[in-house]
Design a protein around this nucleic acid. Structure first.
Length: 630
DNA sequence: CCCCCCCC
Protein backbone atom coordinates (compact mmCIF):
# COMPACT_ATOMS: atom_id res chain seq x y z
CA UNK A 1 0.00 0.00 0.00
CA UNK A 2 2.76 2.39 1.00
CA UNK A 3 4.76 1.41 -2.06
CA UNK A 4 1.78 2.15 -4.26
CA UNK A 5 1.36 5.52 -2.66
CA UNK A 6 5.01 6.36 -3.15
CA UNK A 7 4.85 5.45 -6.78
CA UNK A 8 1.78 7.58 -7.13
CA UNK A 9 3.58 10.53 -5.59
CA UNK A 10 6.53 10.20 -7.93
CA UNK A 11 4.28 10.13 -10.94
CA UNK A 12 2.32 13.09 -9.68
CA UNK A 13 5.43 15.13 -8.98
CA UNK A 14 7.15 14.57 -12.29
CA UNK A 15 4.17 14.10 -14.52
CA UNK A 16 4.77 17.36 -16.31
CA UNK A 17 8.36 16.54 -17.21
CA UNK A 18 8.57 12.81 -17.71
CA UNK A 19 7.96 11.69 -21.28
CA UNK A 20 5.09 9.25 -21.35
CA UNK A 21 5.69 6.16 -23.38
CA UNK A 22 2.78 5.28 -25.63
CA UNK A 23 1.48 1.73 -25.22
CA UNK A 24 2.88 0.23 -28.41
CA UNK A 25 0.68 -2.52 -29.84
CA UNK A 26 -2.46 -1.25 -28.11
CA UNK A 27 -4.19 -0.29 -31.38
CA UNK A 28 -3.50 -3.65 -32.95
CA UNK A 29 -4.70 -5.41 -29.82
CA UNK A 30 -7.91 -3.39 -29.84
CA UNK A 31 -8.58 -4.23 -33.47
CA UNK A 32 -8.11 -7.89 -32.70
CA UNK A 33 -10.78 -7.84 -30.05
CA UNK A 34 -8.49 -7.57 -27.03
CA UNK A 35 -9.03 -4.97 -24.38
CA UNK A 36 -5.66 -3.66 -23.21
CA UNK A 37 -5.88 -2.06 -19.78
CA UNK A 38 -5.25 1.69 -19.45
CA UNK A 39 -3.36 2.12 -22.74
CA UNK A 40 -1.51 5.39 -23.11
CA UNK A 41 -2.34 6.88 -26.50
CA UNK A 42 -1.86 10.03 -28.47
CA UNK A 43 -4.69 11.90 -30.10
CA UNK A 44 -3.81 12.72 -33.71
CA UNK A 45 -6.96 14.66 -34.41
CA UNK A 46 -10.51 15.42 -33.37
CA UNK A 47 -13.56 16.06 -35.50
CA UNK A 48 -17.02 17.08 -34.44
CA UNK A 49 -19.78 15.14 -36.20
CA UNK A 50 -22.94 17.19 -36.39
CA UNK A 51 -26.07 15.24 -35.64
CA UNK A 52 -29.61 15.78 -34.53
CA UNK A 53 -28.74 16.02 -30.86
CA UNK A 54 -25.49 16.49 -28.97
CA UNK A 55 -22.46 16.63 -31.29
CA UNK A 56 -20.26 13.52 -31.32
CA UNK A 57 -16.49 13.83 -31.28
CA UNK A 58 -14.54 11.51 -33.52
CA UNK A 59 -10.91 10.89 -32.59
CA UNK A 60 -7.88 9.57 -34.38
CA UNK A 61 -5.81 7.56 -31.90
CA UNK A 62 -2.19 6.50 -32.07
CA UNK A 63 0.03 4.16 -30.05
CA UNK A 64 3.10 5.40 -31.86
CA UNK A 65 3.09 2.37 -34.18
CA UNK A 66 -0.46 2.34 -35.49
CA UNK A 67 -3.20 4.87 -35.74
CA UNK A 68 -6.89 4.24 -35.72
CA UNK A 69 -9.56 6.59 -37.04
CA UNK A 70 -12.88 5.15 -35.89
CA UNK A 71 -12.93 6.11 -32.28
CA UNK A 72 -15.56 8.25 -30.64
CA UNK A 73 -15.64 10.19 -27.43
CA UNK A 74 -18.56 9.46 -25.13
CA UNK A 75 -20.67 12.62 -25.23
CA UNK A 76 -20.23 13.32 -21.53
CA UNK A 77 -16.54 13.85 -22.30
CA UNK A 78 -17.18 16.37 -25.11
CA UNK A 79 -15.87 19.15 -22.88
CA UNK A 80 -12.39 17.70 -23.19
CA UNK A 81 -12.44 18.70 -26.85
CA UNK A 82 -14.40 21.92 -26.60
CA UNK A 83 -12.20 23.33 -23.85
CA UNK A 84 -9.00 22.24 -25.60
CA UNK A 85 -7.72 19.73 -23.06
CA UNK A 86 -7.91 17.05 -25.76
CA UNK A 87 -6.55 18.15 -29.12
CA UNK A 88 -4.09 17.13 -31.77
CA UNK A 89 -1.03 15.49 -30.15
CA UNK A 90 -2.45 15.37 -26.62
CA UNK A 91 -1.25 12.24 -24.78
CA UNK A 92 -3.79 10.55 -22.54
CA UNK A 93 -4.58 7.37 -20.69
CA UNK A 94 -7.67 5.55 -21.95
CA UNK A 95 -9.04 4.40 -18.61
CA UNK A 96 -12.37 3.05 -19.76
CA UNK A 97 -13.74 2.27 -23.17
CA UNK A 98 -16.19 0.23 -25.15
CA UNK A 99 -14.86 -1.66 -28.12
CA UNK A 100 -17.29 -3.23 -30.55
CA UNK A 101 -17.71 -4.31 -34.16
CA UNK A 102 -20.18 -2.66 -36.51
CA UNK A 103 -21.58 -4.28 -39.64
CA UNK A 104 -19.34 -7.28 -39.24
CA UNK A 105 -15.98 -5.68 -39.92
CA UNK A 106 -15.48 -2.16 -38.72
CA UNK A 107 -14.40 -1.78 -35.16
CA UNK A 108 -15.40 1.25 -33.18
CA UNK A 109 -13.91 2.25 -29.85
CA UNK A 110 -15.92 4.55 -27.64
CA UNK A 111 -13.76 6.38 -25.09
CA UNK A 112 -15.64 6.48 -21.80
CA UNK A 113 -13.02 7.78 -19.40
CA UNK A 114 -9.72 9.42 -20.15
CA UNK A 115 -6.96 11.07 -18.18
CA UNK A 116 -4.87 13.74 -19.83
CA UNK A 117 -1.14 13.11 -19.34
CA UNK A 118 0.56 15.61 -21.61
CA UNK A 119 -0.33 18.65 -23.65
CA UNK A 120 0.77 18.72 -27.31
CA UNK A 121 3.75 20.88 -26.32
CA UNK A 122 4.85 18.55 -23.54
CA UNK A 123 4.54 15.60 -25.89
CA UNK A 124 6.72 17.41 -28.42
CA UNK A 125 4.33 16.90 -31.32
CA UNK A 126 3.44 13.66 -33.04
CA UNK A 127 5.16 10.63 -31.54
CA UNK A 128 6.57 8.05 -33.98
CA UNK A 129 5.28 7.35 -37.48
CA UNK A 130 2.02 5.53 -36.83
CA UNK A 131 0.49 3.56 -39.70
CA UNK A 132 -3.29 3.64 -40.04
CA UNK A 133 -5.17 0.44 -39.24
CA UNK A 134 -8.89 -0.03 -39.52
CA UNK A 135 -9.52 -3.76 -39.31
CA UNK A 136 -8.10 -6.72 -37.41
CA UNK A 137 -4.82 -8.32 -38.45
CA UNK A 138 -4.10 -12.01 -38.93
CA UNK A 139 -1.75 -13.49 -36.36
CA UNK A 140 -1.64 -10.24 -34.52
CA UNK A 141 0.84 -10.25 -31.72
CA UNK A 142 3.18 -12.69 -33.48
CA UNK A 143 4.86 -9.76 -35.12
CA UNK A 144 4.10 -7.17 -32.57
CA UNK A 145 0.79 -6.28 -34.13
CA UNK A 146 2.35 -4.98 -37.31
CA UNK A 147 0.67 -5.70 -40.62
CA UNK A 148 1.53 -9.25 -41.61
CA UNK A 149 4.04 -9.12 -44.46
CA UNK A 150 3.53 -12.79 -45.39
CA UNK A 151 -0.12 -12.27 -46.21
CA UNK A 152 -0.72 -12.36 -49.98
CA UNK A 153 -1.50 -8.99 -51.42
CA UNK A 154 0.07 -7.29 -48.50
CA UNK A 155 3.68 -7.13 -49.56
CA UNK A 156 3.63 -3.46 -50.26
CA UNK A 157 2.50 -2.36 -46.84
CA UNK A 158 5.30 -0.36 -45.37
CA UNK A 159 5.07 0.04 -41.61
CA UNK A 160 6.73 3.43 -41.78
CA UNK A 161 5.21 4.47 -45.07
CA UNK A 162 2.63 7.09 -45.89
CA UNK A 163 -0.98 6.93 -44.81
CA UNK A 164 -2.09 3.63 -46.23
CA UNK A 165 -5.31 1.86 -45.46
CA UNK A 166 -4.65 -1.89 -45.26
CA UNK A 167 -6.50 -3.74 -48.01
CA UNK A 168 -9.83 -5.26 -47.17
CA UNK A 169 -8.41 -8.72 -47.82
CA UNK A 170 -6.55 -8.40 -44.57
CA UNK A 171 -9.71 -8.50 -42.58
CA UNK A 172 -9.95 -11.65 -40.58
CA UNK A 173 -13.52 -12.59 -39.62
CA UNK A 174 -12.30 -13.93 -36.34
CA UNK A 175 -13.62 -13.33 -32.82
CA UNK A 176 -15.39 -10.03 -32.81
CA UNK A 177 -14.83 -8.94 -29.29
CA UNK A 178 -16.70 -9.27 -26.11
CA UNK A 179 -20.16 -10.75 -26.25
CA UNK A 180 -22.67 -10.06 -23.51
CA UNK A 181 -22.10 -12.24 -20.45
CA UNK A 182 -18.54 -13.18 -21.22
CA UNK A 183 -17.51 -16.04 -23.45
CA UNK A 184 -20.96 -17.54 -23.85
CA UNK A 185 -21.74 -16.64 -27.44
CA UNK A 186 -25.28 -16.60 -28.71
CA UNK A 187 -25.18 -15.90 -32.41
CA UNK A 188 -28.92 -15.88 -33.00
CA UNK A 189 -32.01 -15.08 -31.05
CA UNK A 190 -34.59 -17.77 -30.27
CA UNK A 191 -36.98 -18.49 -33.09
CA UNK A 192 -34.22 -18.87 -35.63
CA UNK A 193 -34.08 -15.28 -36.82
CA UNK A 194 -30.61 -14.36 -37.98
CA UNK A 195 -30.22 -11.44 -35.64
CA UNK A 196 -26.89 -10.73 -34.06
CA UNK A 197 -26.70 -10.47 -30.32
CA UNK A 198 -24.96 -7.16 -29.78
CA UNK A 199 -23.31 -5.69 -26.70
CA UNK A 200 -25.70 -3.14 -25.26
CA UNK A 201 -22.96 -0.51 -25.21
CA UNK A 202 -22.55 -0.71 -28.98
CA UNK A 203 -26.20 -0.07 -29.87
CA UNK A 204 -26.91 3.00 -31.99
CA UNK A 205 -29.96 4.08 -34.00
CA UNK A 206 -27.97 3.37 -37.18
CA UNK A 207 -28.21 -0.40 -37.06
CA UNK A 208 -31.44 -2.06 -38.01
CA UNK A 209 -31.04 -5.74 -37.19
CA UNK A 210 -29.89 -6.43 -33.71
CA UNK A 211 -30.76 -8.20 -30.54
CA UNK A 212 -29.45 -7.84 -27.02
CA UNK A 213 -29.21 -10.33 -24.21
CA UNK A 214 -29.70 -8.36 -21.05
CA UNK A 215 -30.50 -8.66 -17.39
CA UNK A 216 -33.16 -6.42 -15.86
CA UNK A 217 -31.56 -4.32 -13.13
CA UNK A 218 -34.39 -1.94 -12.32
CA UNK A 219 -38.11 -1.72 -13.01
CA UNK A 220 -40.40 1.26 -12.49
CA UNK A 221 -44.09 1.12 -11.70
CA UNK A 222 -46.84 1.61 -14.24
CA UNK A 223 -47.54 5.30 -14.45
CA UNK A 224 -50.17 7.39 -16.17
CA UNK A 225 -49.52 10.73 -17.76
CA UNK A 226 -51.71 13.50 -19.05
CA UNK A 227 -50.50 16.69 -20.71
CA UNK A 228 -51.53 19.01 -23.55
CA UNK A 229 -49.94 16.65 -26.07
CA UNK A 230 -51.90 13.62 -24.96
CA UNK A 231 -52.26 11.01 -22.30
CA UNK A 232 -51.50 7.37 -21.71
CA UNK A 233 -49.58 5.04 -19.50
CA UNK A 234 -46.04 3.83 -19.44
CA UNK A 235 -43.36 2.10 -17.47
CA UNK A 236 -39.59 2.10 -17.74
CA UNK A 237 -36.94 -0.39 -16.82
CA UNK A 238 -33.18 -0.71 -17.08
CA UNK A 239 -31.26 -3.65 -18.48
CA UNK A 240 -27.55 -4.33 -18.58
CA UNK A 241 -24.89 -6.68 -19.86
CA UNK A 242 -21.11 -6.62 -19.56
CA UNK A 243 -20.83 -3.70 -21.95
CA UNK A 244 -23.22 -1.27 -20.32
CA UNK A 245 -26.80 -0.51 -19.40
CA UNK A 246 -29.72 1.11 -21.19
CA UNK A 247 -33.10 2.46 -20.22
CA UNK A 248 -36.16 0.98 -21.91
CA UNK A 249 -39.62 2.53 -21.95
CA UNK A 250 -42.93 0.96 -22.99
CA UNK A 251 -46.02 3.03 -23.72
CA UNK A 252 -49.71 2.14 -23.71
CA UNK A 253 -50.30 -1.25 -25.41
CA UNK A 254 -46.65 -2.23 -25.08
CA UNK A 255 -46.73 -1.23 -21.42
CA UNK A 256 -49.62 -3.64 -20.81
CA UNK A 257 -48.05 -6.32 -22.94
CA UNK A 258 -44.66 -6.38 -21.23
CA UNK A 259 -45.26 -5.12 -17.70
CA UNK A 260 -45.86 -8.47 -15.96
CA UNK A 261 -43.15 -10.18 -17.94
CA UNK A 262 -40.33 -7.84 -16.95
CA UNK A 263 -38.86 -8.83 -13.60
CA UNK A 264 -35.71 -7.55 -11.92
CA UNK A 265 -32.94 -10.14 -12.16
CA UNK A 266 -34.30 -12.01 -15.19
CA UNK A 267 -32.48 -12.18 -18.53
CA UNK A 268 -34.21 -11.46 -21.82
CA UNK A 269 -33.44 -11.27 -25.50
CA UNK A 270 -34.77 -7.97 -26.78
CA UNK A 271 -34.95 -6.91 -30.42
CA UNK A 272 -36.76 -4.57 -32.79
CA UNK A 273 -36.89 -1.52 -30.60
CA UNK A 274 -36.39 2.15 -31.41
CA UNK A 275 -33.28 3.91 -30.16
CA UNK A 276 -33.30 7.62 -29.48
CA UNK A 277 -30.84 9.93 -27.74
CA UNK A 278 -31.03 9.68 -23.97
CA UNK A 279 -31.80 12.86 -22.10
CA UNK A 280 -29.15 13.05 -19.42
CA UNK A 281 -31.45 14.97 -17.13
CA UNK A 282 -33.73 11.97 -16.68
CA UNK A 283 -31.46 9.12 -17.58
CA UNK A 284 -28.19 8.32 -15.91
CA UNK A 285 -27.37 5.03 -17.52
CA UNK A 286 -23.98 4.82 -19.22
CA UNK A 287 -25.74 4.80 -22.59
CA UNK A 288 -26.01 7.66 -25.07
CA UNK A 289 -29.36 6.27 -26.26
CA UNK A 290 -32.49 4.83 -24.78
CA UNK A 291 -34.90 2.27 -26.12
CA UNK A 292 -38.62 2.44 -26.79
CA UNK A 293 -40.42 -0.84 -27.39
CA UNK A 294 -42.74 -0.94 -30.39
CA UNK A 295 -45.64 -3.07 -31.52
CA UNK A 296 -43.22 -5.40 -33.33
CA UNK A 297 -40.61 -5.53 -30.56
CA UNK A 298 -39.82 -8.93 -29.14
CA UNK A 299 -38.90 -9.66 -25.54
CA UNK A 300 -38.05 -13.30 -24.92
CA UNK A 301 -37.08 -14.79 -21.59
CA UNK A 302 -33.69 -16.44 -21.69
CA UNK A 303 -34.46 -19.80 -20.09
CA UNK A 304 -30.84 -20.92 -20.31
CA UNK A 305 -29.77 -18.23 -17.89
CA UNK A 306 -27.65 -19.96 -15.30
CA UNK A 307 -27.59 -16.93 -13.06
CA UNK A 308 -23.81 -17.02 -12.90
CA UNK A 309 -23.12 -14.06 -15.09
CA UNK A 310 -24.56 -11.13 -13.22
CA UNK A 311 -23.22 -7.95 -14.72
CA UNK A 312 -22.42 -5.30 -12.21
CA UNK A 313 -24.45 -2.15 -12.03
CA UNK A 314 -22.34 0.55 -13.63
CA UNK A 315 -21.90 3.62 -11.53
CA UNK A 316 -20.64 7.11 -12.23
CA UNK A 317 -20.16 8.20 -8.65
CA UNK A 318 -20.25 11.86 -7.70
CA UNK A 319 -18.52 12.90 -4.48
CA UNK A 320 -20.98 14.21 -1.93
CA UNK A 321 -18.99 17.46 -1.85
CA UNK A 322 -19.82 17.99 -5.56
CA UNK A 323 -23.57 17.34 -5.35
CA UNK A 324 -24.50 21.01 -5.44
CA UNK A 325 -23.31 21.17 -9.04
CA UNK A 326 -26.03 18.68 -9.92
CA UNK A 327 -29.11 20.33 -8.41
CA UNK A 328 -32.27 18.81 -9.94
CA UNK A 329 -30.24 16.22 -11.82
CA UNK A 330 -29.74 12.50 -11.29
CA UNK A 331 -26.53 11.20 -9.75
CA UNK A 332 -24.88 8.05 -8.51
CA UNK A 333 -23.56 8.38 -4.97
CA UNK A 334 -21.87 6.08 -2.52
CA UNK A 335 -21.25 6.70 1.15
CA UNK A 336 -21.53 5.41 4.68
CA UNK A 337 -24.73 5.86 6.68
CA UNK A 338 -23.75 8.17 9.50
CA UNK A 339 -27.17 8.37 11.12
CA UNK A 340 -30.68 7.28 10.32
CA UNK A 341 -34.09 8.55 11.39
CA UNK A 342 -37.11 6.49 12.31
CA UNK A 343 -39.75 5.68 9.75
CA UNK A 344 -42.25 8.52 9.43
CA UNK A 345 -45.54 9.18 7.70
CA UNK A 346 -46.37 12.28 5.74
CA UNK A 347 -49.53 13.38 4.01
CA UNK A 348 -49.13 14.01 0.31
CA UNK A 349 -51.65 16.75 -0.04
CA UNK A 350 -51.84 16.81 -3.83
CA UNK A 351 -52.81 13.15 -3.94
CA UNK A 352 -54.59 13.02 -0.62
CA UNK A 353 -52.71 9.96 0.52
CA UNK A 354 -50.17 9.10 3.13
CA UNK A 355 -46.60 8.12 2.30
CA UNK A 356 -43.94 6.46 4.39
CA UNK A 357 -40.76 8.46 4.57
CA UNK A 358 -37.35 7.99 6.15
CA UNK A 359 -34.28 10.18 6.18
CA UNK A 360 -30.69 9.27 6.73
CA UNK A 361 -27.35 11.03 6.49
CA UNK A 362 -24.69 9.84 4.13
CA UNK A 363 -20.98 10.71 4.38
CA UNK A 364 -18.02 9.98 2.15
CA UNK A 365 -14.29 10.61 2.08
CA UNK A 366 -14.80 14.11 0.74
CA UNK A 367 -15.71 14.96 4.34
CA UNK A 368 -19.18 16.03 3.25
CA UNK A 369 -22.53 14.87 4.45
CA UNK A 370 -25.95 14.96 2.83
CA UNK A 371 -29.45 14.06 3.93
CA UNK A 372 -31.17 11.42 1.82
CA UNK A 373 -34.94 10.90 1.76
CA UNK A 374 -36.41 7.48 1.04
CA UNK A 375 -40.04 6.84 0.18
CA UNK A 376 -42.55 4.02 0.52
CA UNK A 377 -41.09 0.54 0.51
CA UNK A 378 -37.53 1.86 0.28
CA UNK A 379 -38.15 3.77 3.52
CA UNK A 380 -39.79 0.82 5.26
CA UNK A 381 -37.17 -1.79 4.51
CA UNK A 382 -34.11 0.44 4.95
CA UNK A 383 -31.85 -0.68 7.79
CA UNK A 384 -29.07 1.80 8.37
CA UNK A 385 -28.27 1.26 12.03
CA UNK A 386 -25.01 -0.64 11.47
CA UNK A 387 -23.53 2.15 9.32
CA UNK A 388 -23.73 0.26 6.04
CA UNK A 389 -22.22 1.50 2.82
CA UNK A 390 -25.05 2.59 0.55
CA UNK A 391 -24.72 3.03 -3.21
CA UNK A 392 -27.52 4.77 -5.05
CA UNK A 393 -27.84 4.83 -8.81
CA UNK A 394 -29.95 7.68 -10.11
CA UNK A 395 -30.74 9.64 -6.95
CA UNK A 396 -32.38 13.04 -7.43
CA UNK A 397 -30.48 16.08 -6.19
CA UNK A 398 -32.85 18.60 -4.66
CA UNK A 399 -32.25 22.14 -3.47
CA UNK A 400 -34.44 21.62 -0.42
CA UNK A 401 -32.48 22.84 2.60
CA UNK A 402 -29.81 23.98 0.15
CA UNK A 403 -28.89 20.50 -1.07
CA UNK A 404 -30.37 17.10 -0.34
CA UNK A 405 -31.00 13.80 -2.07
CA UNK A 406 -34.22 11.97 -2.77
CA UNK A 407 -34.66 8.39 -3.94
CA UNK A 408 -37.04 8.10 -6.86
CA UNK A 409 -38.95 5.12 -8.15
CA UNK A 410 -36.14 4.51 -10.61
CA UNK A 411 -33.33 4.83 -8.06
CA UNK A 412 -31.49 1.59 -7.34
CA UNK A 413 -30.34 1.35 -3.74
CA UNK A 414 -27.61 -1.18 -2.95
CA UNK A 415 -26.58 -1.99 0.60
CA UNK A 416 -22.90 -2.86 1.09
CA UNK A 417 -22.36 -3.51 -2.62
CA UNK A 418 -19.50 -5.74 -3.65
CA UNK A 419 -17.45 -3.06 -5.38
CA UNK A 420 -14.02 -1.57 -4.59
CA UNK A 421 -15.44 1.84 -3.69
CA UNK A 422 -17.53 0.23 -0.96
CA UNK A 423 -14.58 -1.55 0.65
CA UNK A 424 -12.51 1.60 0.49
CA UNK A 425 -15.26 3.60 2.19
CA UNK A 426 -15.78 0.94 4.84
CA UNK A 427 -12.08 0.97 5.61
CA UNK A 428 -11.98 4.74 5.72
CA UNK A 429 -15.00 4.86 8.02
CA UNK A 430 -13.62 2.27 10.40
CA UNK A 431 -10.16 3.80 10.55
CA UNK A 432 -11.22 7.28 11.59
CA UNK A 433 -13.88 8.39 9.16
CA UNK A 434 -16.63 7.73 11.68
CA UNK A 435 -15.27 10.36 14.04
CA UNK A 436 -14.17 12.84 11.40
CA UNK A 437 -16.05 16.13 11.44
CA UNK A 438 -18.23 16.42 8.37
CA UNK A 439 -19.69 19.41 6.60
CA UNK A 440 -23.35 18.86 5.81
CA UNK A 441 -24.64 20.20 2.50
CA UNK A 442 -28.16 19.87 3.84
CA UNK A 443 -28.74 22.95 5.95
CA UNK A 444 -32.01 22.42 7.76
CA UNK A 445 -34.04 25.52 8.45
CA UNK A 446 -33.96 24.82 12.17
CA UNK A 447 -30.24 25.34 12.36
CA UNK A 448 -30.21 28.91 11.16
CA UNK A 449 -29.42 28.74 7.45
CA UNK A 450 -31.58 27.28 4.76
CA UNK A 451 -32.26 30.46 2.86
CA UNK A 452 -29.43 30.29 0.35
CA UNK A 453 -31.58 28.42 -2.15
CA UNK A 454 -34.56 30.61 -1.32
CA UNK A 455 -37.03 31.42 -4.04
CA UNK A 456 -37.53 35.05 -3.14
CA UNK A 457 -40.92 36.53 -4.04
CA UNK A 458 -43.17 39.32 -2.90
CA UNK A 459 -46.71 38.67 -1.74
CA UNK A 460 -47.92 40.43 -4.92
CA UNK A 461 -46.14 37.78 -6.98
CA UNK A 462 -48.55 35.15 -5.66
CA UNK A 463 -51.33 36.67 -7.76
CA UNK A 464 -49.20 38.12 -10.56
CA UNK A 465 -47.39 34.89 -11.28
CA UNK A 466 -50.38 32.62 -10.62
CA UNK A 467 -48.48 30.74 -7.97
CA UNK A 468 -50.09 27.61 -6.58
CA UNK A 469 -52.09 26.91 -9.74
CA UNK A 470 -50.09 23.87 -10.78
CA UNK A 471 -50.46 20.31 -9.50
CA UNK A 472 -47.58 20.80 -7.15
CA UNK A 473 -47.42 23.63 -4.63
CA UNK A 474 -45.03 26.54 -5.07
CA UNK A 475 -42.61 27.30 -2.27
CA UNK A 476 -41.52 30.89 -1.92
CA UNK A 477 -39.56 32.93 0.60
CA UNK A 478 -40.75 36.42 1.50
CA UNK A 479 -39.86 39.08 4.02
CA UNK A 480 -43.16 39.85 5.71
CA UNK A 481 -44.62 41.70 8.70
CA UNK A 482 -47.42 40.23 10.77
CA UNK A 483 -50.33 42.69 10.91
CA UNK A 484 -52.57 40.64 13.11
CA UNK A 485 -52.64 37.20 14.67
CA UNK A 486 -56.16 35.86 15.20
CA UNK A 487 -57.00 34.86 18.78
CA UNK A 488 -59.91 32.55 17.97
CA UNK A 489 -59.38 28.81 17.47
CA UNK A 490 -55.64 29.07 17.96
CA UNK A 491 -55.50 25.76 19.82
CA UNK A 492 -57.19 22.43 19.45
CA UNK A 493 -57.14 19.24 21.49
CA UNK A 494 -55.40 16.49 19.56
CA UNK A 495 -54.87 12.74 19.87
CA UNK A 496 -52.03 12.06 22.32
CA UNK A 497 -50.44 9.45 20.03
CA UNK A 498 -47.04 10.51 18.77
CA UNK A 499 -47.74 9.94 15.09
CA UNK A 500 -51.29 11.32 15.21
CA UNK A 501 -52.35 14.94 15.39
CA UNK A 502 -56.02 14.46 14.73
CA UNK A 503 -58.50 16.54 16.68
CA UNK A 504 -60.17 14.44 19.39
CA UNK A 505 -63.90 14.36 20.06
CA UNK A 506 -64.70 15.68 23.55
CA UNK A 507 -66.83 12.96 25.21
CA UNK A 508 -67.27 15.17 28.32
CA UNK A 509 -66.20 14.19 31.86
CA UNK A 510 -62.53 14.29 30.84
CA UNK A 511 -62.87 11.59 28.15
CA UNK A 512 -61.68 12.05 24.58
CA UNK A 513 -61.88 9.95 21.47
CA UNK A 514 -59.63 9.78 18.38
CA UNK A 515 -61.50 8.46 15.36
CA UNK A 516 -58.32 7.85 13.44
CA UNK A 517 -56.61 5.76 16.10
CA UNK A 518 -59.89 4.30 17.35
CA UNK A 519 -58.76 5.30 20.82
CA UNK A 520 -60.64 6.44 23.90
CA UNK A 521 -58.48 8.30 26.39
CA UNK A 522 -58.49 10.84 29.15
CA UNK A 523 -55.43 12.56 27.73
CA UNK A 524 -54.91 14.93 24.85
CA UNK A 525 -52.24 17.28 23.61
CA UNK A 526 -52.62 20.87 22.48
CA UNK A 527 -51.86 21.68 18.86
CA UNK A 528 -51.48 25.14 17.33
CA UNK A 529 -53.12 26.63 14.26
CA UNK A 530 -52.30 30.31 13.89
CA UNK A 531 -54.14 32.39 11.33
CA UNK A 532 -52.25 35.55 10.58
CA UNK A 533 -52.68 38.53 8.34
CA UNK A 534 -49.24 39.34 6.92
CA UNK A 535 -48.01 42.02 4.55
CA UNK A 536 -44.96 43.17 2.66
CA UNK A 537 -44.48 46.39 0.70
CA UNK A 538 -46.74 45.20 -2.09
CA UNK A 539 -49.64 43.13 -0.80
CA UNK A 540 -51.21 41.52 2.24
CA UNK A 541 -52.60 38.04 2.65
CA UNK A 542 -53.82 35.56 5.25
CA UNK A 543 -51.51 32.70 6.09
CA UNK A 544 -51.86 29.60 8.26
CA UNK A 545 -49.13 28.50 10.59
CA UNK A 546 -49.07 25.09 12.30
CA UNK A 547 -47.55 23.69 15.46
CA UNK A 548 -43.76 23.86 15.09
CA UNK A 549 -43.54 27.20 13.32
CA UNK A 550 -46.23 28.59 15.61
CA UNK A 551 -44.20 27.67 18.67
CA UNK A 552 -41.20 29.45 17.19
CA UNK A 553 -43.25 32.58 16.50
CA UNK A 554 -44.92 32.68 19.92
CA UNK A 555 -41.75 31.59 21.70
CA UNK A 556 -43.91 29.20 23.70
CA UNK A 557 -44.94 25.57 23.40
CA UNK A 558 -48.51 24.71 22.44
CA UNK A 559 -48.88 22.90 25.75
CA UNK A 560 -47.85 25.94 27.80
CA UNK A 561 -50.10 28.17 25.74
CA UNK A 562 -53.02 25.82 26.28
CA UNK A 563 -52.50 25.84 30.03
CA UNK A 564 -52.15 29.62 29.99
CA UNK A 565 -55.46 29.91 28.15
CA UNK A 566 -57.12 28.00 31.00
CA UNK A 567 -55.48 29.96 33.80
CA UNK A 568 -54.87 33.51 32.59
CA UNK A 569 -56.78 34.79 29.58
CA UNK A 570 -54.98 38.14 29.68
CA UNK A 571 -51.55 36.58 29.59
CA UNK A 572 -52.73 34.31 26.76
CA UNK A 573 -53.82 37.37 24.74
CA UNK A 574 -50.49 39.02 25.35
CA UNK A 575 -48.58 36.03 24.01
CA UNK A 576 -50.52 36.24 20.75
CA UNK A 577 -49.89 39.98 20.58
CA UNK A 578 -46.15 39.28 20.67
CA UNK A 579 -46.05 38.65 16.96
CA UNK A 580 -48.12 41.60 15.79
CA UNK A 581 -45.98 44.06 13.79
CA UNK A 582 -42.97 41.78 13.92
CA UNK A 583 -41.09 41.05 10.68
CA UNK A 584 -39.78 37.65 9.62
CA UNK A 585 -38.45 35.65 6.72
CA UNK A 586 -41.18 33.18 5.92
CA UNK A 587 -41.01 30.21 3.65
CA UNK A 588 -44.53 29.85 2.30
CA UNK A 589 -46.29 26.99 0.61
CA UNK A 590 -48.73 28.34 -1.98
CA UNK A 591 -51.36 26.00 -3.35
CA UNK A 592 -54.83 26.41 -4.79
CA UNK A 593 -57.49 24.24 -3.23
CA UNK A 594 -61.22 23.92 -3.45
CA UNK A 595 -63.29 24.59 -0.35
CA UNK A 596 -67.10 24.53 -0.47
CA UNK A 597 -66.96 24.62 -4.26
CA UNK A 598 -64.82 27.72 -4.18
CA UNK A 599 -61.24 27.93 -5.42
CA UNK A 600 -58.92 29.76 -3.10
CA UNK A 601 -55.20 30.06 -2.73
CA UNK A 602 -53.99 28.62 0.54
CA UNK A 603 -50.78 30.04 1.93
CA UNK A 604 -49.10 28.00 4.67
CA UNK A 605 -46.05 28.98 6.68
CA UNK A 606 -43.58 26.10 6.45
CA UNK A 607 -40.68 27.92 7.98
CA UNK A 608 -40.18 31.12 9.89
CA UNK A 609 -36.88 32.71 10.86
CA UNK A 610 -35.71 36.08 12.13
CA UNK A 611 -34.64 38.62 9.52
CA UNK A 612 -31.02 37.93 8.71
CA UNK A 613 -29.50 41.18 7.53
CA UNK A 614 -26.64 39.34 5.89
CA UNK A 615 -28.99 37.14 3.85
CA UNK A 616 -31.27 40.04 3.06
CA UNK A 617 -28.45 42.23 1.81
CA UNK A 618 -27.25 39.34 -0.35
CA UNK A 619 -30.70 39.06 -1.83
CA UNK A 620 -30.87 42.82 -2.48
CA UNK A 621 -27.43 42.82 -4.07
CA UNK A 622 -28.51 40.00 -6.37
CA UNK A 623 -31.62 42.01 -7.28
CA UNK A 624 -29.51 45.06 -8.11
CA UNK A 625 -27.17 42.97 -10.21
CA UNK A 626 -30.13 41.63 -12.16
CA UNK A 627 -31.31 45.20 -12.85
CA UNK A 628 -27.88 46.11 -14.18
CA UNK A 629 -27.84 43.17 -16.57
CA UNK A 630 -31.29 43.89 -17.98
C1' DC B 1 -45.40 9.86 -26.42
C1' DC B 2 -42.61 10.18 -20.07
C1' DC B 3 -39.23 13.05 -17.44
C1' DC B 4 -43.71 12.78 -11.60
C1' DC B 5 -41.14 11.03 -6.93
C1' DC B 6 -44.34 13.33 -2.81
C1' DC B 7 -43.16 15.74 3.42
C1' DC B 8 -40.73 20.01 5.07
Amino acid sequence: MIAVLRQFCVLGKYSGKMPFKLTEGAISALLNGHEPKDPILQCLGTKSIAGSGVPRMRLVLSDGVHSFATSMLATQLNDFVTDGRLQQNTVFKLKQYQSSVLQGSKRIVICLDIEILQTPDEAGGKIGEPVPLSVAQNAAGANGGLPNPSKPGNENVNPSGPNRIPPAAMYSPKPTGKMPFGKEQVPTTPGGTQTRVMPIGSLTPYQNKWSVKARVSQKGTMREWKNPRGEGKLFSFTVLDDSGDIRITCFKEEADKFYDMIEVGKVFYISNATLKPANAQYNNTTHDYEMTLRRDSTVTLCDKDDGKMVPKIQYKFVNISNLEQNISGLVDVIGVVKSVEDLNSVMIKSQNREAKVRKFNLVDQSGSEVTVTLWGLDAEKFDGKEHPVVAMKGAKVSDFNTCSLSAMGSTTISMNPDIPEAYQLKQWYESGGSTQATQSLTISSGSGGGTSAANWKTLADIKNENLGMKDKPDYITAKVTVLYCKKENVLYKACPNDQCNKKVIDLEQGKYRCEKCDLQTDEFKYRLILNMHVADEYESTWVTCFQEQGEILLKMSAQELGELQQTDENAFDNVLKRVDFQSYFMKLRVKMDRFNDEDRTRVTVVNVSPISNVDYIKKLQADIQKLQVE
